[in-house]
Design a protein around this nucleic acid. Structure first.
Lengths: 107, 107
DNA sequence: TCCTCATATAGATGTTAATCTATATATGTT
DNA sequence: AACATATATAGATTAACATCTATATGAGGA
């Protein structure tokens, strides 16, 4: 249960950087290689490589190698899962933490 | 345009901590005072105060004072806005960054 | 007025993260 | 085999953050 928050917090942390949000937006219209993504930014190639690693480590982005190129693409299933988690979080649902009587005296 | 990513990244950063995700979950079933929220956690009262400040600074949570107590509650409108932003981000929409021909050679 | 209680702020500390330069790896070409 | 190109890794630096202890603020009650 606590794991649920940790796992999603890790994904959310990966998305908490403006540059990485832009990368997600760039990938939303289809897979792109690193050099195409890099054109949108002012930072260096190793910095992009770092950002892609962060996005891949939480399985929100995946990679396909082809010759010299790395093609990145969204894991749409995991993107949708994250949004479902957030919708669930802000909604008063059955698995809300408040329904855990043992730890909360909510009416 | 760039502002859009910065503003939402700030909200997402506020949500990128497991404890703050739990706080959102706790607030999803209605407003709570600080001491009720604190009961769910092992950290100290000043640490909770810090987390509430982070959540309030990005307008995802608001506060109502009543005597000695501070009652916190979700700003549902801003919660929904965030989810809409994310859904838009991962979807290939008209305002995708890729449609900006001046900066991207997407087919 | 003095005390108690709920919450906020200040300041310190250890950890994590974003970025850079330099270099490594691995594939394709001549 | 030697070289060029795309991407990844290593290591350093600076900034941001989560948490703590100590203290301040501000409202209610005796």
């Amino acid at each position: 249960m606590k794991q649920k928050y940790d796992d999603n917090a890790r994904i959310i942390k990966a998305l908490s950087d403006p540059s990485r949000l832009r990368i997600i937006d760039i990938l939303s219209c289809g897979e792109k290689c690193a050099c195409d993504i890099l054109e949108h930014f002012d930072f260096t190639q190793p910095t992009l490589s770092h950002h892609m690693k962060v996005l891949m480590d939480c399985s929100i982005v995946e990679c396909r190698k082809e010759g010299l190129w790395s093609y990145y693409y969204l894991n749409n299933n995991n993107c949708n899962r994250l949004i479902l988690f957030l919708m669930n979080l802000i909604t008063d649902t059955e698995d809300c933490i408040c329904k855990d009587k043992s730890k909360c005296e909510c009416k």
